[in-house]
Amino acid sequence: MIRFITFIGSKLLNVAQGLGEMLALFCETVYYFKEAPRNLPSIFRQMNLIGVGTLPIAMLVALFVGMVLSVQTGTQLALYGTQEAIGAIVGMSMVKELGPVMTSLLVAGRVGSAMAAEVGAMQVYEEIDALKTLEISPVRYLAMPRLIACLFTVPALVSFAIVVGIIGGGVVAEVNPKINVPFTVYYDNMIRALTYKEIFKGLLKAMVFGGIIAHVGCYVGFKTTGGARGIGESTTRSVVLSFLLIMVANYFLTRFMI
């Protein structure tokens, strides 16, 4: 029994310590934002990697999400003859939830894991140590450009995803014989429902998620130990941790922005 309590206690302490370290790293990263101008090239490089690299797959995913959303809700609405509302429903869901969350999960799996692996490899192969002896802060050189790039790129990706998802939903609504809502009706309906405020909230979410992805990737990378095996573990851990944090953050952001 005592052993069990000790076990739980040490786990809790580990979690608390991890959170503390993450917070400390976050503060340090933000502190180095002031040095951002001279790291512009590497920020652009990261943006390119994150944004341009993820764009096609993000749009594809968003397209199908919009389409399935339209089919599912559209056919249900059609039972009550209220399928006109489909534009508003697809638009709102894409902007408020599906766009930010789906895209961020995609970026976490594709980019966050790669960051953790890259930084983790640098940790394992003493490159981080070498940076320190060259009087270069690893946080400034590695974490800061990634965080900034993610903060801007993920909202951009999400905006593309939202647009594509909405178009996908609209096409399905028009083409599917059971729903059969003309695109103009769909569009009018959606525009009436969406406000700038909602769009802003959706993009703010995306920005927070982007920050989570980059931060988790770098934090897990910096904490990597144990050779090639450790790098593999870090990759997995970064994906799991950022999925979790994105979901938790999503709840609280939604709760407090409503």
Binding site: M122, A130, L134, I136, Y141
Partner: peptide, 21 residues
């Protein structure tokens, strides 16, 4: 282990300190 930076070329490795600082 040498600890060269993988993402940089040889020249960039050598000049990193000079450039960054």
């Amino acid at each position: 282990s040498s600890a060269l930076f993988n993402s940089l070329t040889v020249g960039e490795n050598v000049g990193l300190w000079l450039r960054e600082n």
